[in-house]
């Protein structure tokens, strides 16, 4: 559905050499897929999204959505979009803002009120519907933005930092919403700093740094699970027995950290349990996405 072929974008400046915000990005997003974009601040995520919405044009390379330039695609079909910051005029009321956007979304007059009710219900802002946006908390404002993104049935969905400002309850609810909108004919793109969120929601995550894609991690497959990785093991007795079962393991109180593949982990645990250890929990010290992110992104 979305094809980026060697896309680059440089912000030019009268006073200096300009900033290359996106550099030779090649990526494909198919229908039915949820793709994450992860990267530090200034990595080029927002520029990439602006180009996908057709609001910026690449200097080099080609970007197409269903074979069309993005602006033409958006003008014909629209995109469900939640931006990083909700910048609507704060004097608008929540329901009024949604009504305006429903008009622009092309929702017929006879269905407009019902659709607005549906999204208000979906994001739980019923009690805030008559409030002006300036009276809403950051989380509630973000939920109004989410309601806006869910207003119309679109084949392309873009969420930019979707859980920014949401409390843990609504962060979890957001995952259900994304699970609900996942569809065979729909492509979803989520840009976020939250790696845990991306790991739970996406099929693949593209790690972007300094304008370029450093790595694309498959998070929905078993790839990488059997590889050696760092584990955290919690015990209630004999942590030294666990540490002794793994080469190079360290322990602090009742927590042991070691490196092993899945087979080695199980063998080591069996040895430790036989030696008197009582294991309470075993978990990866960091997710495969975190590991990939850490090795792909240069610290600045």
């Amino acid at each position: 559905m979305i094809v980026l072929d060697n896309v680059s974008k440089t912000y030019r400046s009268w006073r200096g050499p300009g900033v290359r915000a996106v550099s030779n990005v090649t990526l494909e997003l198919k229908r039915g897929e949820v793709l994450g974009i992860a990267g530090p601040n200034g990595a080029g995520k927002s520029t990439l999204i602006a180009m996908l919405l057709g609001m910026l044009t690449p200097d080099e390379g080609e970007l197409t959505i269903d074979g069309m330039p993005p602006r033409r695609y958006v003008e014909r079909n629209g995109v469900a979009y939640l931006p990083e910051l909700m910048t609507w005029p704060l004097t608008w009321r929540s329901d009024e803002a949604l009504k305006r956007m429903a008009v622009l979304a092309g929702i017929p007059a006879e269905r407009r009120d019902a659709e607005i009710e549906r999204v208000i219900e979906a994001v739980g802002i019923g009690e805030h519907r008559r409030k002006k946006l300036k009276a809403l908390s950051k989380g509630n404002l973000q939920r109004v933005g989410l309601a806006h993104a869910l207003l119309a049935d679109r084949a392309m969905v873009i969420f930019d930092e979707p859980t920014h400002g949401l409390d843990p309850v609504w962060t979890a609810r957001f995952r259900d919403i994304v699970a609900g909108i996942r569809r065979a004919d729909r492509a979803v793109l989520i840009a976020s700093h939250n790696l845990d969120e991306l790991e739970r929601l996406c099929d693949r995550v593209a790690i972007v740094d300094r304008g370029a894609i450093q790595r694309v991690v498959e998070v929905r497959t078993d790839a990488g699970i059997t590889a050696a990785r760092r584990w955290r093991i919690r015990v209630t007795q004999a942590p030294d027995a666990v540490a002794a079962a793994f080469e190079g393991a360290t322990f602090n109180g009742m927590d042991v950290e070691c490196t092993a593949d899945v087979a080695g982990l199980n063998a080591g645990l069996a040895t430790a349990i036989n030696a008197g250890a009582l294991v309470v929990a075993v978990a990866p010290a960091e997710s495969s996405l975190e590991e990939a992110f850490r090795s792909a992104v240069t610290l600045r």
């Binding site: 602006a50 919405l53 057709g54 609001m55 958006v74 003008e75 014909r76 079909n77 629209g78 995109v79 469900a80 979009y81 931006p83 910051l85 910048t87 609507w88 005029p89 956007m101 622009l104 979304a105 092309g106 806006h148 119309a152 873009i158």
Partner: peptide, 14 residues
Amino acid sequence: ERNYVRFIFSHPVS
């Protein structure tokens, strides 16, 4: 300046 364009023109609006 206030980024309203991102909302307005993410809809099928020219």
